[in-house]
Design a protein around this nucleic acid. Sequence first.
DNA 1: GTTGAGCGTT
Length: 173
Amino acid sequence: MAPSSSLLRRLLRGSTPVSSSSAASSILRATFCSSSSSAPSPTESPLYSVFVDDAEVSNVPPLTTPKLFISGLSRLTTDENLKNAFAPFGQLLEAKVITDRISGRSKGFGFVRYATLEEAENARQEMNAKFLDGWVIFVDPAKPRQQKPAPHPDTDSSHTGFTTNKTVGCFGF
DNA sequence: GTTGAGCGTT
C-alpha cells in the first residue's frame, strides 16, 4: 500500500522545507548507506550466497511501468517544472502535475511517463527524494489509471466451474 | 493567502 517513501515523507514533514539544500541532501544520501560486506569465496557454497538479504521491498530492482508517480511536489510546482526536472533523464512522453479543477491548483503530485523503463528507472533513482521547488519529491511507480480490461476474461458462472486442483499431495514423499 | 495524503483529464 504505502511505499517506503511514506516513511521518509513523514519524517521530512514538519521540517523547514527549504533551508539548506546541501545539508538536507547529505542526510538523505546517508540513508542509503548500504555496504554489502559479503564476499563470496569461490570455495564457499554459493547456495548460501543466493539468499543474501531480503531486507526491504523498497529495493531498486526493476520497475514495472514507465509511468512514474511523483509525490511531494510543491504547490508552486507546475507541469513545466516537473517536465524540466525529469526532462534530462529521458524522453518524457507525459509530464503532468495533477491539479484540482475545483480549486485550480496543484494537488501536490504528478505523473511522468518515460519512453522506456530504463529512463524511468534512471529518473527514479536519480530524482527520488530530491529537491524540487523547495520540497522533497518522491518518485514511485504509478498505478495504471485504467486497469487492464481483462487479462483473465473468465466469464464464469456459466461454465461447470470445475476447479482442477493442481495441489498434488506430494510434498517430498 | 502555502505547508501536505495521495494515483490523473482526456
